[in-house]
Amino acid sequence: MANLKEIRTRMASVKTTRQVTSAMKMVSAAKLRKAQEAIIRIRPYAGKLHDILSNLSESLSSMEDNPYAIDRGYNRVLLVVINSNRGLCGGFNANVNKKALQLAHHEFGEQLKGGDLDVLAIGKSAFDFFTRRDFSVKNENDLYDNLDFDHVSPIAKSVMKAFTDGMYDKVYLVYNQFKNAATQILTSEQFLPIVQEENEESNSNIDYLFEPSKEEIVKELIPKSLKIQFYRAILDSNAAEHGARMTAMHKATDNATDLLKELKLHYNKARQTSITGEILEIVSGAEALNG
């Protein structure tokens, strides 16, 4: 059994740790709310854009001309790995890294061997992880400092340009989708070429006027829609990060509380033993004098 002073210092340290984790939990909760609002705000835009696009594609048969939908086989692959700059959020970062690595080894093993697989890391954790494993990595870590559409869209644009220029033939996104504060859904989806959706039953047969022309509009809308998709993935990941950190910190706080309780018990026991010992000494000392 440790002595009293040792236990006391230990208790003090656990207490400060608990303070830190609970403060981090509060901060994450506040950030989570903000991130969640951002996703909720983008949903109408993404939804409306999708509506217009699907209205459009009904009256358009030649989606094949679309430079973003060309399937050139699997030659050069880009993995866009989205996670966070900071740690202390449970398995959040590790899960994404693991998933991306798995994807790289299983799906694109040949490209990996031939050096035709690049990683675009959004988040320091992904960057460190893949640099350590000697992947060719580009990174965009500064994004999270001010996360808005203006900062995300150039990145999306450069990815799209690399695709249309033939630098990459396939682009995948790997990220955590935000479901709720406690749950993230690990997602990997094909970003480019565009996966054609099955045409749902069309109910609106409206004859639209197009200005300047149908083709022009499609050319304008598809990149926009892709950019939004990209932005949305990043927002999702951002919200998921704060959710994950909040849960992790909540657990850490709980654990610290448990530990503290246990230590308190030890401390009191040790204290009692030492007092009993002292009394015993005094009493036996007095006995000896009387005797």
Partner: peptide, 19 residues
């Protein structure tokens, strides 16, 4: 400000999509 020139939309305008 449409791509092909500015235009106005009033009530019961024909369906249109424009950049």
């Amino acid at each position: 400000p449409g791509t092909d020139g500015s235009f106005e939309v009033l009530k019961n305008h024909a369906p249109i999509i424009s950049t």
